[in-house]
Design a protein around this nucleic acid. Structure first.
Lengths: 299, 299
DNA sequence: TCGTTCGATAGAAGAATTCTATCAAGTCGG
DNA sequence: CCGACTTGATAGAATTCTTCTATCGAACGA
């Protein structure tokens, strides 16, 4: 029964019978039969089909909700029993928004010191993807904004405050300043993340609030690409203070990270995990680690 | 998988492989194999056996906890999908302490008016049994004391306050009084519930607090037996005011229900349901009904 | 209209579950 | 200490479920 519910979850994720079957490691007829069997036992159609997948029925959405819960609990049960025997072990799947990727280390390093048998998979994701993948049990926890856009049903642990810096070459315009205003920043050609990222939406809003149309010359969903441009000293960017610091971008003295004021905007970044209680032991340990680390990151 | 977890729950309930198998509608070897299979997939022994059932291991207790949750959710899922198609239907299993049995009607009558396809099974149980059976998914809700002994993880809806009356023949000693004290009540021969009932423990404590050794001449776990004795007019009892009223015990003028004072003790009775969120639709509707009815019962 | 994609269906092979029958160990009364 | 009884494990056969491969038919697009 539980494996059939996993079929449903895969189908919701992939929106395609064939791919969902692949994801579950079975053939397409097997997955079709599994879904059909759930429908038969409930006596209700769960999936709208018309020669192709057309979404779930109202009943299907409800079943999906329960399926997420039940499958999640079943996994948590396995994990907990395993932990009782062999200590914490397994793989923790974490997703972080690009600007928080460099901060994942502050959690994983002490976690691994405490639980050496745990392995990590870290994904770079938008804040919206983090929330849906959390819902769909595709990740165990996320690092994202806590205070900007609505979160939904999650456990949140605030970790640190994101403040913004203009990253610019020392010999470029504005490069010699102690602080710059958002109005000034809006007039420099910038390279930023793409608009599907919340960080971009936040920064763009702050720039627009000045009344000046910002000049966003280059955008990318990859931090590495932005770094490589900024490091040439010929591009400017806006990025969180902590990120610039933890990547050592300003150590060469070629680049400067100048506080942007008027207003001195800030947003809270934190760990999010499913609101389900109890959590899986691996996730619970990560939340505990976050609570432990948070005071050390406060400014 | 889920049906195997049901085997575990049955085993926890029956503490006997054969009886558990019966309860699940399978043969004993099938149940044994099912339990063994869970143990194999987890690689852990869950049940201590030595030619007979000897309880669960530590890991077994944890699995049991998850199993209750998962099986409960699976049932709730079925119920909810069914309700979406055919409206609320099914059987609601309610347990009540004996002194609250007569009040069950205040919930079931309006419930049935709203949802005519729901059927009821009502059990008479001690408050402790109510809590464990709630845990084990053997009942959906209970009516019991909320404020006397600890409850555990449940949703509680206060319904009414239980106050105590001396039920006595009008021409017997004390029969002509407006009120009596607990000290006086302790000196009359009483028939009460057996000591495994919380009501008995409450009343006995109140009687003992007077310093006089109470005279409990007859005890039974059956309210009907107590009624039949009290109705002869030759036995006295202590019972909740509301119970005496709703059974019409004093309508014949032969019996009187005299408030017992010094102190004027009271305890809260309410509906308890599993704390799980979301609840099954049938249970959720009962809780809603309780919240609706509670103000009408307040005094 | 033709090729492609998508999901359903048929039928066979394989795996699992469940049953009956029996066994071995422990328990209890005499 | 013996024999009957209880309890749970085991063996083996029958059955049911599951999963696979192969194929079909409908819808869609060029």
């Amino acid at each position: 029964m539980i494996d059939k519910l996993e079929f449903l979850l895969a189908l919701a994720r992939e929106k395609h019978f064939g791919r969902a079957a692949d994801a579950c490691g079975v053939t397409q007829p097997t997955l079709s039969a599994g879904v059909k069997q759930i429908e038969d036992t409930f006596g209700v159609l769960l999936v709208n089909r018309g020669s192709r997948f057309q979404g779930f029925t109202a009943e299907g959405e409800r079943v999906l909700d329960w399926a997420r819960r039940i499958v999640g609990d079943a996994r948590a049960m396995r994990e907990e029993v395993h932990a009782l025997r062999h200590g914490l072990a397994g793989r923790l799947r974490i997703a972080a928004i690009p600007t928080a990727l460099a901060m994942v280390e502050t959690l994983t390093t002490p976690y691994r010191a405490r639980h050496p048998n745990v392995q990590f998979t870290v994904y770079s994701r938008t804040s919206i993807e983090i929330l849906t993948e959390l819902e769909n049990l595709e990740i165990d926890a996320g690092l994202t904004y806590l205070d900007n856009e609505p979160l939904g049903r999650v456990t949140a642990v605030p970790l640190y405050t994101e403040r913004y810096r203009l990253l610019v070459a020392a010999d470029a315009p504005l490069g010699d300043r102690k602080t710059v205003t958002w109005t000034e920043a809006a007039q420099v050609p910038l390279c930023l993340l793409t608009p599907d990222m919340q960080n971009r939406r936040i920064i763009e809003q702050l720039l627009r609030d000045t009344g000046v149309e910002p000049n966003i010359t280059l955008e990318s969903d990859s931090m590495v690409l932005l770094y490589s441009h900024v490091r040439t000293g010929r591009w400017a960017s806006v990025m969180p203070a902590r990120l610039a610091a933890s990547l050592g971008l300003t150590e060469s003295n070629k680049l400067r990270a100048i506080p942007i004021v008027e207003p001195e905007a800030s947003h809270t970044i934190g760990l999010v995990a499913p609101a389900r209680e109890p959590m899986t032991p691996l996730t619970a340990a990560l939340v505990a680690e976050a609570r432990r680390v948070a005071p050390l990151l406060a400014d």
